[in-house]
Computed example of a mutant assay.
Amino acid sequence: MVKLSVPGIPKSLSPLPSSPPIPIPQAVERVSAFLSPGNAVVLTGAGVSVDSGIRAYRGHDGRYLNPNYKPIFYQELVDPTPTGHLFRQRYWSRSYLGYPPVRDALPNPIHYSLAALQHTGHCRSLITQNVDGLHKKASPSEEVRRRILELHGTLFIVHCKHGHTWDRDSYQERLEALNPLWQPLAEKVGRELRRNPDGDVEVEGMDFASFNIPPCERCAADGVNETVIKPNVTFFGESIHEPLKDQSYRLVEEASRMLIVGTTMATYSAFRLIRHALGLDKPVLLLNVGPTRADSLPAVEKIELPAGDVIRNVAQALCATEAQTDPVLRTLLTSGVVRAAKTGDRGAG
């Protein structure tokens, strides 16, 4: 049996001695100079969505904010046995409760500022580990959306094991219709119930076995009761699909430099992109609070400040002149709702 574990920051990196953070104006000047040549690729993590009210997984020390967090692994979710069905009942009951706040979340100034930098070409492409769709919500055009790669997938698409896909909103309606007794719990999300970045909500004392999972309707039309259903996201223990992996490498190769924002890079799918960039002798700049997996790489320049304190000012510095004649850019530079998550953490991913 293969032993699986939740990825984290290597113990040798936590805690790390850190130099005092540089002043914000100096950080803005440095990031602006880094991006000014254009053609950068940006890699983002959960830290960029905290100001949209979506919790980060990890705190400033790189450890999970909830030390008792026990995610469901891919092998458990797709297990066709009755035991696997219980895992799916646990997952979908908690996801049913946590999906609406993620669905309704709005992009914050970081998302819009990065969209502005894509719009002007300072950032050629963006790779995100987030599954909340906020980068695409902030995008001003389909052309910009095409240059956003959701490395770990999206919560907004659902599929069965036979490859039938449909939108999550319609599946949410079916979940609600089949589970009316769970509706009162939904009103407690964000107050009494804790929500994770992937929409999973921690529920104690509930009988998950009572939760009904709607089967795939297309399979049902063929006389098959298929309840092995999962969102189109990469679970712990699941590999990134090869086309996505190849595309992420290609975006790094096409860019002249890499900017990393709001992530500890605990997952190897992100860390290997940094190593790939360094292997190609591309400059790499990291903006994050707390230890990261990249701290062991001396070629990575690090600025230890929250992204929200820096990125919007960078976008203003680089795009203000062009915004005078570009109404789309003016809107991007002044958009964004800040609704900070109750975590005390604004920088880690």
Rank of each mutant, 00 (worst) to 15 (best):
M1C: 07
M1D: 09
V6L: 13
P21H: 10
I24R: 14
R30K: 15
G38E: 05
V41A: 08
L43A: 07
L43V: 13
A46W: 08
A46T: 03
S49G: 04
V50F: 06
I54M: 06
G62R: 03
N68Y: 15
Y69E: 08
L77D: 01
P82Y: 08
G84W: 05
L86V: 11
L86D: 09
R94S: 11
Y96H: 12
L97N: 04
G98A: 08
A105C: 07
L106P: 02
I110K: 00
H111G: 00
T120F: 00
H122Y: 03
C123V: 01
V131E: 06
D132N: 05
G133I: 07
K136P: 03
K136D: 02
K137D: 05
S141V: 06
I148P: 02
L151T: 07
L151P: 06
H152K: 03
H159Q: 12
C160G: 05
G163H: 07
D167N: 15
D169T: 14
R174Y: 02
L178N: 08
L178G: 09
P180Q: 03
K188H: 10
V189H: 11
V189Y: 11
G190L: 07
G190N: 07
L193T: 00
R194S: 14
E202T: 02
E204D: 13
E204T: 12
D207L: 13
N212D: 12
N212V: 15
N212L: 15
P214Q: 09
E217K: 13
E217W: 10
R218M: 14
R218I: 13
D222Q: 15
V228G: 07
F235R: 02
E238T: 02
S239C: 06
L244G: 05
S248H: 05
Y249V: 06
A255S: 14
M258L: 14
T263S: 14
L273A: 12
L273I: 09
L280P: 02
K282M: 03
L285V: 10
L286S: 11
L286I: 01
N288Y: 00
G290V: 01
P291M: 07
T292K: 07
R293Y: 04
D295N: 08
P298C: 05
A299R: 13
V300A: 04
K302P: 01
E304W: 07
N313Q: 15
A317L: 13
T321Q: 15
Q324S: 12
D326W: 06
P327K: 04
L329D: 00
L333A: 11
V338H: 05
T343E: 11
A348S: 15
A348M: 13
